[in-house]
Write a protein that binds this DNA or RNA. Structure first.
Ligand SMILES: [Zn+2]
Ligand SMILES: [Zn+2]
Ligand SMILES: [Zn+2]
Ligand SMILES: [Zn+2]
Lengths: 165, 165
DNA sequence: ATAGTTAATGTTACATTATAACATAACATA
DNA sequence: TATGTTATGTTATAATGTAACATTAACTAT
């Protein structure tokens, strides 16, 4: 039976983000080893840059930072790495922002449902079987076969609401 | 009580699309009159171009066609008109395609849920209270206040599945 | 080890999507 | 008509993303 998972909750402004980052890198290494794929230094670096925080990151921002230590970088450098990471479920693209965010559960490939705070920019990710199941049910009614589901919800997270911006 | 509406079903390849188009223009005129807004010739023309069919249309494709009869058009021309039409709920932007599609029910502003066929490119739109309600319920659990919901589902429509591409 | 093969990255150029900034024209209304 | 407001024109540029081909690194099989 499928479960409703909170892949990444909203994180308090101050949390031990080093742990998020390290866990993500470790999970990525494990995943790539298991799959016989190469998490090259470049790909790992891009993953680290996407995981700088819990806000979606723009490809060209990644590129700018990549150039600091790796002057030969160009747009294809970063888009290729992002494509690889997306294909492996290590990052997700937020289509409504043209930006990328790390996935907290790359073990199973999923689309995810994203909640994005307009105030702090942070993202929470669910992999919610109720939502997917309901969308599936609605699609079935008119014979639609789903390949991929994109759910991106904009609003205000609890922390920002309470701090009353 | 909120209803589950099928705003636009998938349309058979051959249907009387003139009627879709005319109904959309009429609804837009009514809406703008009611709101005291101006559906200028330019805006109406852009709306007509978006309503050419039930597939999302790209801004620069609208621009190219606009130029045929209106040589002074430039990107801002079309983006402004599209912004106006979006604000009024007369068209929706499909974020994952960077493209625009006409809305079949501009009377009430809504986000809509879109089902997009990879084969024929057509779009069906729902305004489904079950989906919105469930997402709302999930958001409530972590104190998230929703401004806007984006649901875009990619896959294959019944007609394309049956015709076996 | 070495050649042959594939995968990854480098490099240049360009395509696509979108907005900033300021000028002019059309419309409203006092 | 004078005045303020909204809509459009115009130029330039920013932001996002890809095509195409060259080079390098890694893997495979003798
Ligand atoms: Zn963190
Ligand atoms: Zn995920
Ligand atoms: Zn039609
Ligand atoms: Zn709609």
């Amino acid at each position: 039976m499928k479960k409703n998972k909170v892949i990444s909750p909203f994180k308090p402004a101050a949390h031990k983000h080093q742990e998020c980052l390290q866990a993500a890198i470790k999970a990525a290494k494990t995943h790539c080893e298991d799959m016989g794929l190469r998490l090259t230094p470049l790909r790992q670096r891009v993953l680290e840059l996407v995981w700088q925080n819990h806000e979606p990151v723009k490809a060209y921002d990644v590129l700018d930072e990549l150039k600091q230590g790796h002057s030969s970088s160009a747009p294809p450098t970063v888009y290729r790495a992002l494509d690889f990471l997306q294909d492996q479920g290590l990052v997700h693209k937020i289509e409504s922002l043209n930006a990328y965010v790390g996935c907290g559960n790359p073990k199973e490939l999923h689309s995810g449902q994203f909640f994005i705070c307009h105030d702090c920019g942070s993202v929470a990710e669910l992999d919610d079987a109720d939502i997917s199941g309901l969308i599936q049910k609605k699609a079935n009614r008119f014979g639609f076969k789903i390949d991929n589901e994109m759910v991106e919800i904009k609003g205000h997270c609890q922390e920002c609401l309470e701090s009353g911006i």
